[in-house]
Design a protein around this nucleic acid. Structure first.
Lengths: 349, 349
DNA sequence: CTGAAAGCGCTTACAG
DNA sequence: CTGAAAGCGCTTACAG
């Protein structure tokens, strides 16, 4: 009368105990199989795995979490969904995590440090296997977050933080991206540039400006005479509308530069459409370069020249660091230029 | 020597027991305060709340979940992040949930029914307070999902499902949206229409077509002579590129319609830019109407006429149903027309 | 109004 | 190689 695994279960199989009863084993054996303990007879192991598969049994993540085992879950904290580059990063991150057998739990912070702190508190309380913090709002919370993570022994990775942290981080070399864009435009003969939304005083703007100043040193450019920054202190959103407003200011400049480098593709597209509306031709009268390589840039007229962030590689790096348990340090990706038709020879060539 | 709440704690306060010890109470009292039991002395209750606030103590959601209490978490399952309308829906849903004191856990399915099933299984195993399924991939899984939800007594709401389900759902009246768009164009004198990506055979296309046929009956339109559908069987993505491809087919039509109604704003914008590239003027030579009222539509030339989905109200409805514990039925929102400059009098008026 | 018991589903020691 | 114990942090009965 021994229970064989091909028999139908009497009740619902919704716990290791139920599964153990059904297979005529003890729940300790089931647990050992689940946790990859070596001391299980291969035949027993196979029998358990096969039964779990067949019955669609998944061990309760809640039980595991409480007892201190792996939950197979990674918490992902980010500021907002509105921006398409964030959406892409998250979609890719989720895919990479799934491929590594992990589950992603997303939480939004709306850029509010208090919410961010609360989200991290909740994540560690849930005993997740790791945390990913996307975007750079952690400045004010760093110490509190670092101590929470340490006391719970939860590994974490920051994605593209605004500045260097003690926590492990993965980012894009915005300075290099800036140099790529400028080298491209210099090669087309441009000598005077408007920077839309790239404010040296802001976090990401600062990184871009470091690249600019570096290049200026090498190429003997005059930062003062060849560059003009158009930016608002409180732009609201770094979106199409912002680009349009900055384009209006560009149109009002006395000696208009021949090339525009924008903070991102949305600002670039917003600016470009506004300039076209005002009767300017792109690229013969003004060249425009964006940043991010969003879908939208490929579907405007003319197609946008932009800088690609290599999101796929970025997220592979995040998961590798999370899994590897790296405890600090930064890895930086080199972006690459994507040529469109929104940039051309100065004066229309 | 009674412990007063202004004393500093000896160790970390990371459990109800620790908090109880610190306050000189038993952990049962703490638990009762947490769960809003009436039988607690108001003064004690205040003392506990104040201490939790001060010490930043949050009861472990894992412990609560295991014992069967409210977890304060809602699982949100959706197909993909790529589409901006989805991103907006999620952002709004998250905000509304937070306002209701709930936490959202997001999971992507990539439109794969197997992944969807697994995600729902995981959500119910985590003892979440509720589930929200956004988008319509549940067709093949409905019974399995419904039985899982029922056996765990987890309330769920479908957002904008492709067809009617036994599960409670909240959606947008796509037929009404179609009628709004067509009424608008008819009012401008248009008589012949191209439908871009609106395939009667597909789920959402079918709903739009029902609205079309209804209006055709009332307004005595000839569906056969006045409407032409341009769509691909496997479009890949319902994005800008799809709009461009469909615009190419539009350009090849013998007797071109004077107005275009597109599946969504991305298809509309993709098509519009392609038509402009080909030398057509919008709206004097062809009017274009989108669907969704995305940000991008307001920042192309000319500004896109579109139909707004009322995402905010939609998500308010979702959370109300989740909280109210409604067990079935459908509520449908009426969309509204947003006039831009991409639609105008036939022949340029 | 508050204290002591049982148990949610699991894992990690410890025995056999 | 497998079984029985303790316990993770909490809540919901039941006593006092």
């Amino acid at each position: 009368m021994c229970a064989v695994s091909t028999e139908l279960p009497q009740g619902p199989i919704d716990s290791t105990s139920a599964l153990a009863r059904h297979l005529g084993l003890s729940r300790w054996t089931i647990s050992r199989v689940l946790n990859g303990h070596p001391e299980v007879k291969p035949a027993t192991k196979r029998r358990v795995c096969e039964a779990m598969e067949r019955l669609g049994f998944v061990p309760s993540p809640v039980g595991r979490a409480l007892r201190g085992g792996r939950t197979g879950m990674v918490g992902v904290c980010f500021q907002a969904l509105g921006s398409p580059i964030v959406a892409r990063r998250l979609a890719v991150l989720q895919r990479v995590l799934r491929a590594a057998g992990l589950r992603a739990l997303f939480e939004l912070t709306d850029g509010d440090p208090a919410i961010e702190l609360e989200v991290v508190r909740h994540f560690v309380a849930m005993r997740l296997d790791g945390l990913v913090l996307v975007g750079g709002a952690t400045a004010q919370n760093e110490e509190a977050i670092a101590s929470m993570l340490a006391s719970h022994r939860t590994p974490a990775v920051l994605v593209d933080p605004v500045r260097e942290y003690t926590l492990p981080s993965v980012g894009v070399d915005r300075g290099a991206g800036m140099r790529l864009a400028l080298e491209h435009l210099l090669g087309l003969g441009h000598e005077r540039f408007a920077l839309l939304g790239i404010d040296e005083g802001t976090a990401y703007g600062g990184a871009r400006w470091r690249g600019l100043r570096e290049l200026a040193g090498v190429r003997r450019l005059s930062v003062k005479r060849q560059f003009v920054t158009l930016a608002e202190v409180e732009p609201g959103g770094l979106d199409f509308a912002y680009g349009r407003r900055l384009a209006d200011r560009f149109l009002g400049l006395e000696r208009r530069p021949t090339a525009i480098v924008a903070l991102n593709d949305q600002v670039a597209v917003g600016a470009m459409t506004r300039l076209q509306q005002a009767g300017l031709d792109v690229p013969t009268e003004v060249s425009v370069v964006g940043f991010d390589n969003l879908d939208v840039g490929a579907h405007v007229n003319p197609r946008l020249t932009t800088v690609d962030q290599r999101v796929e590689e970025l997220m592979q790096g995040v998961v590798a660091r999370l899994m590897g348990g790296v405890s600090g340090g930064v890895s930086i990706l080199e972006p690459r230029l994507v040529k469109g038709e929104s940039s051309g020879p100065v004066g229309g060539g």
